[in-house]
């Protein structure tokens, strides 16, 4: 299996990553290199092996339902927003997205 250039461009678009023609070609070659690794793994007979959802055979630890992030005055928010390109009235502003 290998990726075509239009497929690479589509994946980039889905992730909203802007790539040049040269980058698209380079990415295609890199991704196809990864696919060849996967192909090698797929050649292994895995019949009867239960698929794993994680590399480690352990299960999720759970936390108690408690509120630990408290920011009533918005001072933490202000710190987080200090690195945002644009904010107003406590909101992050982004280019208009509307249906």
């Amino acid at each position: 299996m290998s990726l075509t250039l239009p497929e690479v461009k589509r994946i980039a678009h889905l992730a909203r990553i802007e790539i040049s023609e040269a980058e698209a070609e380079a990415s295609r070659d890199q991704l196809n290199g990864i696919f060849s690794l996967i192909e090698a793994m797929q050649a292994v007979d895995a019949a009867g092996v239960e698929p794993m959802a994680h590399a480690q055979d352990v299960c999720q630890r759970l936390r108690e339902d408690r509120v630990t992030h408290l920011d009533p005055q918005g001072s933490l928010r202000d710190q987080f927003q200090a690195v945002a390109p644009e904010t107003e009235a406590g909101l992050y502003l982004v280019p208009k997205v509307i249906e």
Partner: peptide
């Protein structure tokens, strides 16, 4: 109300 921008509340 955000002069042509979209406001995000998370």
């Amino acid at each position: 109300d955000f002069h042509g921008r979209t406001g995000i509340d998370l």
